[in-house]
């Protein structure tokens, strides 16, 4: 049923550090690589090597420039995937029950075998987290690598989403956001983690850590400058004579 669970035992999700992300897109590649093999159907691409390539991705990295009131502009790399919302609008609109939110861990999933490819869930999602697979005709979305995190055949350090496992900057964190003592919750608390589009009322599980304020120049910081002043302002000796003579002409 596409009713949302009234309560989830846990709420797994991601915490994404906008201060640390370097925009390398490794998470995008790792996500595509894992999920194109592990889902019931591959994440298809269309015209992949042609003039107008297009494909299904569950994670994309945007880039924004933030212009503060004063000081230089700041570049922010901005990874975006499903936020596994508590009030997920994509789930309740689904006419077939293919979309659902799990009561045990809060992950929002699509059962491909029930999806009719109407696209209404993608319309309902304000974040653009769902993409229609044009080859398979069903909706695809981030599963929080549900087939990794509980997978006992994987080494323990690999039991986290592929994007988190691969991030070379340590900008992505995975954990239970409903537990106030979990590492991710403490991180959110310490860094002022925020919701995207809070006014949409979706109550997203994933949190974003805002970029830390940048340093600014304060007072005289260039300690070498006094020693780099030109020693002779006026030329002397032969050069001085030439300078004076030419000036008289």
């Amino acid at each position: 049923m596409t009713d949302l669970p009234s309560h989830t035992e846990r709420q797994l999700g991601l915490v994404i550090d906008l201060d640390t992300c370097v925009g390398c897109h490794a998470c995008v590649v790792a996500c595509k690589g894992w999920n194109t093999q592990s889902q019931p159907s591959p994440l298809s691409d269309q015209d992949a090597h042609g003039a107008a390539p297009s494909g299904t991705f569950l994670n994309r990295v945007h880039a924004y420039e933030v212009m503060p009131q004063a000081g230089p502009a700041q570049l922010v790399h901005f990874p975006k995937s499903c936020l596994h919302c508590a009030d997920a609008p994509c789930v309740t609109v689904c006419p077939t029950g293919a979309s659902f939110k799990r009561a045990e861990d809060g992950i929002v999933l699509v059962n491909e075998a029930d999806c009719i490819g109407c696209g209404l869930c993608a319309w309902a999602c304000p974040y653009g987290a769902r993409e229609m697979d044009m080859a398979e005709g069903v909706m695809k979305k981030c599963t929080l690598c549900v087939d990794r995190i509980y997978n006992e055949t994987l080494p323990e350090q690999d039991r986290e989403p592929a994007c988190v496992r691969t991030c070379p900057a340590g900008a992505r964190h995975f954990g239970d956001l409903s537990d106030p003592e979990s590492e991710v919750s403490l991180l959110v608390e310490a860094r002022g983690g925020m919701d995207l589009m809070p006014e949409q009322g979706t109550r997203p599980a994933n949190k974003y850590l805002p970029p830390r304020p940048r340093d600014a120049w304060q007072g005289e910081v260039d300690v070498l400058a006094p020693w780099l002043e030109p020693v002779a302002e006026e030329p002397r000796g032969l050069l001085g004579w030439i300078d004076r003579t030419l000036a008289r002409l």
């Binding site: 990295v61 945007h62 880039a63 924004y64 420039e65 933030v66 212009m67 503060p68 925020m194």
Partner: peptide, 22 residues
């Protein structure tokens, strides 16, 4: 949408992919 309001005024610098998408 980006939560970057408190930092200043954001604008898109470049898109996440060169082609189009769904």
């Amino acid at each position: 949408a980006t939560g970057l309001g408190p930092q200043g005024s954001p604008r898109e610098l470049f898109p996440p992919h060169t082609g189009s998408n769904y």
